[in-house]
Simulated assay, not measured.
Amino acid sequence: MYQRKLPKEHYCTVDYALDIFGGKWEPRLLCILGHNSNVRYGELKRSMENISDAALADALKELQESGIVTRHQYDEMPVRAEYSLTEKG
C-alpha cells in the first residue's frame, strides 16, 4: 500500500472528507453498509460488480483505519467476518 512521505495537511473539513471518501470504491461501500446493518465480505463483493478482491480489501482496511467501518470476526471455521458502520460512519 502507498505510504506518504510527508504528512497530509487538511486545510478544511472538505479536504478531510475527500481524503477519506475520495476513492473510487469508498462511496459505494458506504452506501451498501448504510442500507444494511451487518454485511459479510461475500455480500459486499456481489453487490459491487467490477471490484477485485485486493481493491475491496484495501478499501475496507482504509475505512477501518479511519474509524468509519468496523469488522467483527467470529471464532468459527471457516472464518466469518461482518462489516458495519460505526457511530462516526
Rank of each mutant, 00 (worst) to 15 (best):
T13P: 01
K24W: 00
N38Q: 11
W25K: 03
S52N: 14
K24P: 00
R80Q: 13
R4P: 12
E65V: 06
K61W: 02
R80I: 13
I20S: 04
I32K: 03
T86S: 13
S52R: 11
Q73H: 06
R4T: 14
Y83V: 10
Y16A: 11
I51V: 15
S66T: 07
Y11M: 10
N38L: 12
I32G: 04
A55S: 13
E87K: 12
N50R: 10
Q3G: 09
Q73C: 07
S66D: 12
H72G: 06
K24C: 06
V79A: 15
E87C: 05
D58R: 04
T13C: 10
L63D: 06
I51T: 04
K24S: 06
L29S: 00
K45V: 05
Q64W: 03
P27L: 03
R71D: 03
D19A: 12
V69R: 01
G23Y: 05
A81C: 14
D15G: 14
C12A: 14
L60C: 02
S84P: 08
I20H: 04
K24F: 01
R40I: 12
A17C: 13
E9K: 15
R28P: 01
G23A: 06
L33A: 08
E26R: 00
I68K: 02
Y83P: 10
L30H: 09
L44N: 09
L18I: 02
L56R: 00
E82K: 10
E62V: 00
A59L: 03
E82W: 08
D58L: 01
I68C: 09
G34D: 04
G23W: 02
T86N: 06
Y74M: 09
Q73N: 07
P7D: 13
N50Q: 12
A57F: 10
Y11S: 15
V14C: 06
V69A: 06
D15A: 12
N50E: 09
H72S: 13
H72F: 11
A57T: 15
L85P: 11
P7R: 11
E65N: 13
G89V: 05
I20W: 03
M48D: 04
A17H: 10
A59H: 00
Y74V: 10
Y11K: 15
Y41F: 15
H35L: 12
D53K: 05
S84L: 05
P27D: 06
H35E: 14
Y74N: 14
Y74G: 07
G23I: 04
Y16R: 07
S52C: 04
R28I: 02
A17S: 15
K5V: 12
L29T: 02
V69E: 00
K5I: 06
Y83M: 04
Y16P: 02
K5S: 08
A59D: 00
F21R: 05
E43N: 07
N50K: 12
T86W: 06
L63W: 01
K61G: 03
Y2N: 11
Y11L: 15
M1E: 14
R80H: 14
S37F: 09
G22P: 10
E9D: 15
I68D: 08
N36W: 02
